[in-house]
Design a protein around this nucleic acid. Structure first.
Lengths: 243, 243
DNA sequence: CGCCTAGAGTCTACAACGTAGAGCTTTTGC
DNA sequence: GCAAAAGCTCTACGTTGTAGACTCTAGGCG
C-alpha cells in the first residue's frame, strides 16, 4: 500500500473534463463529503452506497480513495484533526495549552458526531501506524513543552494527563449537549423523573443544575487545576511561568 | 416497554425443562454471553447470528431480551459498569475516589473491547434515559462527595472533572496497551521509524519511553494532581481532609 | 384429564450493507 | 495518434439486522 501523500513527481493538474455535472474526484473531495455527511446525519449514515450517491458516483469508485470503510473513517477523523492548528508562537506554555484546549473543544462542538471516532479509532491502530495528521498534535505539543523547558519524558507525561483530561471533558460535555438545547431541559426533567427517588435523590435534586451547563467554563477551570498541579510538581527551573 | 427489572409478582421459578441441552434463556444469560463474546473477539464479533449460535438458539429469539442490537450493546455496557462496586465505607473522600479510579481502570483492562462502548454509548442517549446501572456510579459519587461536605453543585463539578480525567486516562492507556506487549515494542519502533524524522523528531526520540508505560502509576499521579487541585480551590471547611 | 391461551423459540424472507472482479471510459505519456 | 494507465461503473456474492408468520411448550382452569 502506497503512502497516502499525493505523489508529487508529475505535475498533476486536476484537469476538469468537459461534462459539467461530473468533475474528477479526489481523496480530499471524498473525505470532505464524508465529513459533511457525518456532521449532518451521524456516523451510521456514512455508508459507501450513501456516500457514492451523495457524490453522484458509483459506490465502488470510492475504493480508489479509501481502502475500505474503516480507512474512510480514519480519513474523516484525520481531516477533522487537521482543523486544529497549533501555532507555536506564544512563549507561555500554559497559555498555549489553554488555548489549544479551547480550540479542541470548539472542534468537538463543531463535529460532535466525529468525536466517537476521535476517541475510539486510535484504539484499533497501534501508535506508530496511525495517520500522520493524527500524530501531529502529539508531536507539536511535545515540542511546545520541551521548548518550555521540560524534559522529554516529563513532556510525555504532561501530554498524557492533558489530553486525557481534554478528551474526558469533551465526552462529558457532549453527553450534556445532545440534540436540541430547548428540548433538553424538558427531556432531562422527564428522564430524571423516571428515576426511583429513593435510589437517586442527589441526581434528581440536581436537575436544574444539570440543565444549564457551561462547558467552556468547566473546561477552563479543569485546565487551570491541571496546569497548576503540573507546574508545581515537576522539576522545573521555574523561570518561564508567571506565578 | 416494561422496566427491565424482573417482575417479582408471580413466584417465577426458572423451571428447567426436560431436554438437557437447552435451558430457558434470560436477559442475564444473553448479556453475559454477549459480554464474553466481546471480550474474546471484539465488538464486531457481536452479531445477532453469532450470539444466537453461541447460545445454541435461533438469532431471532434474542429480540425477546434486547429490543435490537443497539440495546444489546447498551446492555453489555451496563453489565460491565455493574462490576464496579462502590462501597461508601471509607470516610476519606480522596482515598475513596482514588480507589474507585483504580477499580475503574482494572475494569477497563479486564474488558478493553467494551471501553469504546462505555465512552461512546452515552453520547447517543440523553442522560435521563440511560439504563439505571449506568447512572448509579454518578449518584453514588455525588453522594460520597456531598457526605464529605461539598455542596451539591460543587460535587457535580468535581464529579465531572474526575470522571473526565478518568475516562481520558483509560483511553490513553488502552491505546498504549493494544494487543501483545512483546510484539508491542518492535511494532512501535517499526511504526515510529516510518515517521519523517524532520517532522517528528520528538516522537521518534521518545520511542524507548513510549515502549514501557506504567498506566497505574500515571493514573495515580494524575489523580493526585487533580485531587490536590480540587481540595485546595473549593469552598470547603477543610475539616475532613488530612493535609 | 384435556383443552386453551401466552409466551418462548423458530423459520422464512427482505432490504441494505461492504466489497471482489470484470468491464468500460477517460486521461495521460510518449 | 496510440498504448498504457487510471478513473469509474456494473454485476454479483456473502453477511448483516430485523419484520412477520409459524410452531412448540408450559401452565391455569374447567
Amino acid at each position: 500500500m502506497s503512502p497516502e501523500a499525493n505523489p508529487a513527481p508529475p505535475a498533476a493538474a486536476p484537469a476538469p473534463p468537459a461534462v459539467p455535472g461530473k468533475k474528477r474526484l479526489s481523496r480530499e473531495i471524498v473525505l470532505c463529503a464524508a465529513l459533511a455527511l457525518v456532521d449532518a446525519e451521524g456516523l451510521d449514515a456514512l455508508t459507501m452506497r450513501r456516500l457514492g450517491q451523495e457524490l453522484g458516483r458509483d459506490p465502488m469508485g470510492l475504493y480508489r480513495y479509501a481502502e475500505n470503510r474503516a480507512a474512510l473513517l480514519d480519513g474523516v477523523s484525520e481531516l477533522v484533526l487537521n482543523e486544529l492548528a497549533i501555532i507555536p508562537d506564544d512563549p507561555d506554555w500554559q497559555a498555549q495549552l489553554r488555548r489549544i484546549a479551547h480550540d479542541l473543544r470548539h472542534l468537538a462542538l463543531r463535529h460532535p458526531n466525529v468525536v466517537p471516532l476521535l476517541v475510539t479509532r486510535p484504539l484499533s491502530t497501534p501508535l506508530g501506524l496511525r495517520p500522520l495528521g493524527t500524530l501531529r498534535p502529539l508531536e507539536q505539543i511535545l515540542s511546545l513543552l520541551i521548548d518550555a523547558g521540560f524534559g522529554p519524558e516529563d513532556a510525555l507525561h504532561i501530554y498524557r494527563a492533558y489530553y486525557g483530561y481534554l478528551y474526558g471533558h469533551i465526552l462529558n460535555e457532549l453527553q450534556e449537549f445532545i440534540v436540541d438545547p430547548d428540548e433538553n431541559e424538558a427531556l432531562l426533567r422527564l428522564g430524571l423523573h423516571r428515576l426511583p427517588p429513593k435510589e437517586f435523590p442527589r441526581l434528581r435534586a440536581l436537575a436544574p443544575v444539570l440543565a444549564d451547563y457551561d462547558g467552556m467554563a468547566e473546561l477552563d477551570e479543569g485546565i487551570t487545576i491541571l496546569l497548576s498541579g503540573l507546574a508545581a510538581r515537576l522539576p522545573h527551573p521555574g523561570a518561564q511561568t508567571k506565578p
